[in-house]
Design a binder for these strands. Sequence first.
DNA 1: CTACCATTCAAACGACTGTTTGAATGGATT
DNA 2: AATCCATTCAAACAGTCGTTTGAATGGTAG
Lengths: 214, 214
Amino acid sequence: MPAPSNFSTRERILSVAEDLFARHGFAGASLRQVTAAARVNLAAVNYHFGSKDGLIEEVVRRRLDDLNRGRLAALEATTRREGHVLEDVLDAFIRPALEQSTADDGGAAFVRVLARAWAESDGQLRRFLADNYGHVLREFALAFQRLLPTVDRDELHWRLDIVAGALTYAMAGFGMIQRREGTSPTTHREHTIEHLVRFAAAGLREGTQSRAEG
Amino acid sequence: MPAPSNFSTRERILSVAEDLFARHGFAGASLRQVTAAARVNLAAVNYHFGSKDGLIEEVVRRRLDDLNRGRLAALEATTRREGHVLEDVLDAFIRPALEQSTADDGGAAFVRVLARAWAESDGQLRRFLADNYGHVLREFALAFQRLLPTVDRDELHWRLDIVAGALTYAMAGFGMIQRREGTSPTTHREHTIEHLVRFAAAGLREGTQSRAEG
DNA sequence: CTACCATTCAAACGACTGTTTGAATGGATT
DNA sequence: AATCCATTCAAACAGTCGTTTGAATGGTAG
């Protein structure tokens, strides 16, 4: 059982690679840079991951699985509570993403890795992402559909696509709005979540006669 | 006056580079790939652009200037008409971007180049983009502010950041919603614009007592 | 015709790329 | 103590990278 021994090498490579891939791109970060920063032998990458592509896929998969788990768990917890509203489902979709993207480990880097992976890599990695991400989106689409019965299916998909776009942008830190000196990363994240949820809720409800009943 | 003679070489390099950078990233597309696809000598890149970085910057600058011009012109045309509404300003912001991203020349590729440039290139190119993009955003912020007097400045910036995110995502073609077989690229683009404008308008107006007067 | 000059070209430069190899290492098993 | 096996290591592989060089090219001006 080689569990505790290979913890350091394998995990250090993944962690460093995540950071460097985010900063320089998959092609821009070389295995020599990665292994040097991880203080690990060059050949260790091919030993543990088979190839550079293997390393890339593992970097992406690890975080994406986390994100999917977090989202589905939050969604289930939310939909279980009766009386939940649109904002709750949006929170379940948005919060895990932003929490991961502002974690103090490599999570922040990962999101840029993900965005990059989506644009880069003709087909292969993109297909991988579409496969492992689509079913989560579908799950959420159902939850949204139940809360917005007057919005037809195609229309809802359009709107969810827009939400996903705004969120991806925010996760990647592309936005021009930077955290202020005074505010902590945590409260800034809460601000971002709040704004995204409110904005998305308004956009999703567009044309709907939404009527609060509380 | 070397105008008509160097048209082909210089322009062919820019066009091909735009496409390849979008598909493989700045680091992923080599000058040999670019010059081969453009049927041009390898050394031509360094001759005309000084270096690969010079080529990258020129590729980005050319399109970004176009986009900025288009947006500011549309904004001015809109704000000149009295009685214009939020949706009009949003259209002036969104339409030029999507028109460029769906042009039959390399415009589609460019947007992915832009998104990539924003993520990639630590500082340098990102700063260049922030400088040449910020003043356009500021111009639009003023127009929005006039139409949404009850939304305070900070709040508005948050919401505009979200709009920019959704738009960037849509421009890059990251979205899961693909054009249907039956619909032409033009009508699909109009659909996208319409959805983005409506969604964004709803989000921007959130909390406002908007009351149609027509 | 000659001289000029921007442009193109083939060839080579050193540096860096991902990957492979075979030996060294060291803890666990017999 | 001897064997095994996963892991690490230094070194080298062939190939590609961006860039430079100096000679060829060909249209234009004197």
